[in-house]
Structures are given as structure tokens and as C-alpha cells.
């Protein structure tokens, strides 16, 4: 803080010094009682131009000072906003960990007790068996949710591997895995992958290959999930000014505008997601992975036309 103040006061003193010296010298000359005059033999055009230039210089200097101040204020405001966001993320992380801590014991107890209710399931009548299955499925579901939330909280802070990662390979792996899965479930999908070869292939990034796979996988899986089986999904890689971009686009139902801001938050499931299985944590995970790699993930969507998600990561 004192450094910043020093940087602002220094130039001001330097600017005032000539003025002060001039005033002091004038005072001394007046005090001497002698009548001294300067006669300048400059042509009038030069004198006029000089006065004009001096006024311009003074105006420019004033404007520069004001701009500097505005910039300093803007920098301070953005630093405060960033710090505020980080505080918010930290508070959020603490909340997730508390939630995990408070939920894991009750859920463990439920799962441990349940088999004792009906050690031999074949002895239950149909209604009892259904009720038992419901209890078991929902306990497992809760269990999974607790584990996923903790995973998110943990991925925000744990040290990451810093390996050289070929994002093009990661994209191809994720698309191949999801394509296989779709085919195995009886609904083959068309996923078009476009990766640059000229003028150069997709630059590598530094980070954790497993987590980057997870991010790309979740984006492609979402595109498949929220678009009709006969519609194409496109995955494009590109690089721009030191940033590697992976774009995943679908021509599905799109996301209503009022839901778009929140899609990367935990447990958010949009209207379109009703009736489609999922935890509401897939995109939150993508966001954490992007942030931990110094990147971002953004979304553009038009209801009725489709959605495009862009993962941007710093190139090596």
C-alpha cells in the first residue's frame, strides 16, 4: 500500500519542484530591490506557437494524471472483486466440506443398517421388495452425491500434476470412449472431430491428463445427452494467441437464457434436464478443472437451436 502511495506522490513532487524554485528565486530577486527585466527577441509567430504548445502540454499532462488515477481505481476495484470472488469460492469450498462431513455418517449408517432389514431378500413379498429396493437405491444415490461433492471440493485445492498433455489425444480418447458407450447402448451417435493439422497441430497444455480428460468427456457427454440421437455433435480444436480452445457443439434443445448463468454451479439441473439422469455436477467439475489449469469454460446457447461449450486453456 505505502509503495503505491510513494509511486503517486513522487511524480507530483517532481512536477511541483520547478515551480517552487521559480517562486523562491523571484522572491529573492524582488527582495534585492533591483529592477531587472528580460527582453526576449523572439518573432511573434514563434512566441504564439510556444504558448499554444505549452497549453497543450499542460492539458495533456493533466489528462494523463486523471487517466492514471482512473486506471489505479479500476485496478484496485478489479483486485477487490477478484479477492471477493476468491473469498466466495473459499467459503463455498468450506461449505461443501462441512456438508460432506455432516452427511457422510448418516449415509454410512443407512447403508450399513439396510442389509439387516432383510438379510434374505427372497423372503419379502412384492411390495416389501419394492420398498427395500427404493431404500437401497436412494441410499446409494445419496452416497454418490456426497462423494461427488467432496471430490469437487478436493479438486479445487489438491496439488495438480504438471505434465505435458496433448489435448488433441485427450479429445480423441474421450470421443472414442463416448462413441463406444453410445454404440454399446444401442444408440450409435455421430461425433465429428475437427483438429487442426496446418499450419500446426493443436498445441500441448500443461496439467493433469486425467482431469483434462474428465473435463472434455463431461462436455461431450452433455452434448450427447441433451441432443436428439439423430443429430450430430461436433468437437473442434483450435488455438488462438497462446490459448488452446476445445469447442463442443450440439444442435439440441439449447438452454433457456435465464438458466445459462448458473449452469456451471453445483447441483443445477435445467428444465431440459428433467427426466434425464445426472447429478448436476458434471459442468461444475469442468469449471473446476478449467480454473485449476488457468483456463475458463464458457457457454453459448440458443433455445431451439443448440449449445456450444468452449474450454480455453493456456498453451505450453
Amino acid at each position: 500500500m505505502s509503495d503505491a502511495r510513494g509511486r503517486r506522490v513522487g511524480p507530483l513532487l517532481a512536477a511541483l519542484l520547478p515551480g517552487l524554485l521559480g517562486l523562491l528565486a523571484a522572491g529573492a530577486l524582488l527582495g534585492s530591490g533591483r529592477s531587472l527585466r528580460v527582453v526576449v527577441g523572439a518573432p511573434l509567430p514563434v512566441a504564439v506557437a510556444t504558448v499554444g504548445l505549452l497549453v497543450t502540454a499542460a492539458a495533456l499532462a493533466g489528462a494523463a494524471l486523471a487517466r492514471g488515477r482512473r486506471r489505479a481505481v479500476a485496478v484496485a476495484a478489479s483486485a477487490a472483486e477478484r479477492a471477493g470472488r476468491e473469498d466466495e469460492r473459499a467459503a463455498h469450498r468450506r461449505f461443501l466440506l462441512r456438508l460432506d462431513h455432516e452427511m457422510k455418517n448418516p449415509v454410512t449408517a443407512m447403508r450399513a443398517a439396510l442389509p439387516g432389514v432383510a438379510p434374505d431378500r427372497t423372503l419379502l413379498d412384492a411390495g416389501q421388495a419394492r420398498a427395500y429396493d427404493t431404500l437401497e437405491q436412494q441410499a446409494v444415490r445419496l452416497s454418490g452425491l456426497v462423494a461427488e461433492l467432496r471430490k469437487l471440493a478436493e479438486l479445487e485445492t489438491r496439488p495438480l500434476d504438471q505434465e505435458d498433455v496433448d489435448l488433441a489425444q485427450v479429445v480423441q480418447d474421450a470421443v472414442a470412449d463416448l462413441g463406444d458407450q453410445a454404440a454399446a447402448s444401442g444408440v450409435a451417435r455421430t461425433i465429428t472431430v475437427t483438429l487442426p493439422r496446418a499450419p500446426w497441430p493443436l498445441p500441448h497444455v500443461r496439467g493433469d491428463a486425467d482431469l483434462l480428460y474428465l473435463a472434455v468427456h463431461n462436455l461431450v457427454a452433455n452434448a450427447l445427452k441433451f441432443s436428439p440421437a439423430d443429430s450430430p455433435v461436433e468437437v473442434r480444436g483450435s488455438d488462438d494467441d497462446g490459448v488452446v480452445v476445445v469447442e463442443v457443439a450440439d444442435s439440441g434443445a439449447g438452454i433457456p437464457e435465464h438458466e445459462q448463468a448458473a449452469v456451471f454451479d453445483e447441483l443445477v439441473r435445467g428444465e431440459q434436464a428433467r427426466g434425464i439422469p445426472g447429478s448436476g455436477l458434471g459442468l461444475a467439475l469442468v469449471r473446476v478443472v478449467a480454473q485449476r489449469h488457468g483456463g475458463t469454460v464458457t457457454l453459448r446457447s440458443r433455445p431451439g437451436q443448440g449449445t456450444s461449450a468452449r474450454l480455453r486453456l493456456p498453451a505450453v
Partner: peptide, 15 residues
């Protein structure tokens, strides 16, 4: 320290 967990797991492991 949670009795509910002790009870449930103990009977499960006993079975």
C-alpha cells in the same frame, strides 16, 4: 463414535 454406524456394521460383519 456413531452408534448407528457401529450397530449396522457390526451386525453386517457378523452375518
Amino acid at each position: 463414535d456413531e452408534e448407528a454406524i457401529r450397530d449396522g456394521l457390526a451386525s453386517f460383519l457378523t452375518r
